[in-house]
Amino acid sequence: MSFTSCQGQKKDEPTENTTEIYTYKSGDYNGIGKWYLGREIAHVMGFQGMEWLNRPEREKEENVSKLLENMDIQSDDVIADIGAGSGYHVFKMAPIAHEGEVYAVDIQEEMLAEMRRQLQNNGLDNVNLIKGYEQSVNLPENTIDKVLMVDVYHEFNYPLEMMLSIKKSLRPNAKVYLIEYRGEDRSIPIKTIHKMTEAQSIKEMEAAGFKLVKNIDNLPWQHCMVFEKS
């Protein structure tokens, strides 16, 4: 178990030449005024929202148990939870992948501190806490079997750079699970800028060299889109 950042890419190091791929204009009050492939990037939810991440009704609203079934986690899987937050999914996945490892990646020190506190109390020895950066997940190359991103991708300030960084960390045949509130469904009580459509998701993933394998349509409010390197 590690409480320090692993030696991956340098802080905010661009993975490829990605100049002139973003545009800037005013938009949604909850956006940052930066656009990527026609989508405005949302503000990052700060650590002040930690209580919402851990809300008791989350299982009912999101059916997290079903999401974990969708991931088909094996005992020796090496998994990366990108934007792990307070560790809601991390501490559910780690006991399943008990012979493997879970990398919990977040850019906020307060989130890492909360996961560190939980680790000191639960005895898990297969969780690694990783300080990520805006343009790098800071993971070792060719290491990860499965990547989980739950309602976080739409907040990446540098989505292309982040996906290219993730791609470098993946083993052959690795899977990326992109979980986002369905932008096609206006009835879902989430702000529009914090949702994504399947079509927009595919467009952005393809730009980074990924292809959609399937969209598992069994979660109450979210897409469960599975991507592989193309």
Rank of each mutant, 00 (worst) to 15 (best):
G123N: 15
L124Y: 07
A104C: 12
E110S: 07
N122S: 07
A104D: 05
I107T: 10
L119P: 00
R116V: 02
L112N: 03
I107K: 10
A113Y: 11
N128I: 07
A104M: 09
N121C: 13
N126G: 07
A113H: 12
E110I: 02
L112C: 05
A104R: 00
L112W: 06
A113C: 07
A104S: 10
L119T: 01
R117K: 13
L129A: 04
E101D: 11
N128F: 12
V105P: 03
Q118A: 06
M115P: 01
N126D: 11
V105I: 14
Q118F: 04
D106Y: 03
E110T: 04
N126L: 09
D106R: 03
A113I: 04
L129F: 08
M111H: 01
V127A: 14
E110V: 01
L119I: 08
E101Y: 13
G123E: 12
Q108H: 08
R116L: 03
L119M: 12
E101R: 15
N126T: 08
Q120H: 15
E110Q: 11
A104Q: 05
E110M: 06
E110P: 02
D125Q: 14
Q108Y: 09
M111Q: 03
E114V: 06
E114F: 09
Y103G: 00
Q120P: 05
N121K: 15
L129V: 06
D125W: 15
M111W: 01
V127H: 11
E109G: 12
V127Q: 11
L129R: 00
E101P: 02
A104I: 03
N121I: 15
V127K: 09
E114I: 06
Q108V: 03
V127I: 11
M111T: 01
I130H: 04
R117M: 11
V127L: 14
M115R: 02
Y103E: 02
D125H: 15
N128R: 08
I130K: 01
R116H: 15
E109D: 13
R117G: 05
M111C: 06
G100W: 15
V127S: 15
M115C: 03
G123D: 13
A113L: 09
Q118K: 15
D125G: 08
Y103M: 02
E114S: 06
Y103H: 06
L124E: 05
Q108T: 02
M115A: 00
Q118E: 06
L124N: 05
E114Y: 10
Y103S: 03
E101A: 08
V127W: 10
V127T: 09
D106W: 02
R117Y: 15
N128T: 12
N122P: 04
E109W: 12
N121L: 14
L124K: 09
R117E: 12
M111R: 04
V102R: 08
M111E: 04
L119F: 03
